[in-house]
């Protein structure tokens, strides 16, 4: 890649995610995150390259599209497919997960805002693929959605349903003690953008997706109804 202009700050690994290493640094003087999809030694090298460059391209395009549509996502600075590299804005703030765990006042409002953002995103034909409360950074009261590593373009109810299902499941495992409140706030926010009808449709889809899993008690009850 072209050498970015470093201004003082030393690069710092902020996360070694499953998918990529995230390095905090600067880009043309602005605080930036370098997201590098590193080769995985457990994957066949050809499969590895295919997955890394496809995902880098899709992620960059989606972040860019959403940002241009005015949604709270990081701004895109630089992309290199062959290196699996994306440089983007560093969003300074707290993880929504931590705010909920600390029970900061108004956490339900933040989740409601998140519901709005996700509804707008779905309205633009993008599904995130990994909506969890650790993938939301709150900066000045605005929930920024990050990590579009598994995002894709789709308008299909199935994909929207999976997106919402993943969020609910993450809340159930991470915030099991306040999950009802969190899930309700999410749907309130979502409905304020997409409408109650659409939320009903999505909830029905989510239910269907959950019943597909194995050994689900509810499935038998449904069959016996």
């Amino acid at each position: 890649m072209t050498k970015p202009m470093y201004r003082g700050e030393t690069p710092k690994i902020i996360a070694l995610g499953a998918e990529a290493a995230l390095i905090k640094h600067t880009f043309l003087g602005m605080p930036a995150v370098y997201k590098v999809r590193l080769p995985k030694p457990y994957r066949d090298p050809k499969l590895d390259l295919r997955l890394r460059s496809e995902r880098t391209a899709t992620e960059a395009k989606i972040i860019h599209d959403l940002r241009l549509a005015g949604l709270p996502v990081p701004a895109l600075y630089y992309v290199s497919l062959s290196e699996g590299l994306i440089v983007m804005e560093y969003v300074e703030g707290d993880l929504l997960r931590d705010l909920i765990n600390r029970r900061v006042s108004g956490y339900a409002d933040l989740v409601r805002e998140l519901g709005k953002v996700i509804a707008l995103m779905h309205g633009l034909g993008v599904v995130h693929g990994d909506i969890t409360t650790s993938n939301v950074v709150v900066r000045e009261g605005t929930p920024y959605v990050i990590d579009f590593g598994l995002a894709k373009y789709s308008n299909e109810l199935e994909d929207v349903g999976v997106d919402v299902h993943l969020f609910i499941r993450a809340v159930e495992s991470t915030h099991y003690d306040v999950m009802e409140e969190v899930i309700m706030a999410f749907f309130e926010g979502y409905a304020s953008i997409a409408g109650e009808e659409r939320v009903k449709e999505i909830k029905e889809k989510v239910r269907e997706i959950r019943l597909r899993g194995r050994y689900v008690e509810e499935r038998r009850q449904k069959r016996n109804k």
Binding site: A15, L16, G17, A18, E19, K40, Y42, R43, D44, L47, D130, T132, S134
Partner: peptide, 22 residues
């Protein structure tokens, strides 16, 4: 067989790695 095996195992390892990170 090779492709199927690589894809299936890689997918399992990837979600496991995500689970570790999470």
């Amino acid at each position: 067989c090779y492709t199927v095996r690589e894809i299936a195992y890689s997918a399992i390892i990837e979600v496991s790695e995500r689970g570790l990170a999470h």
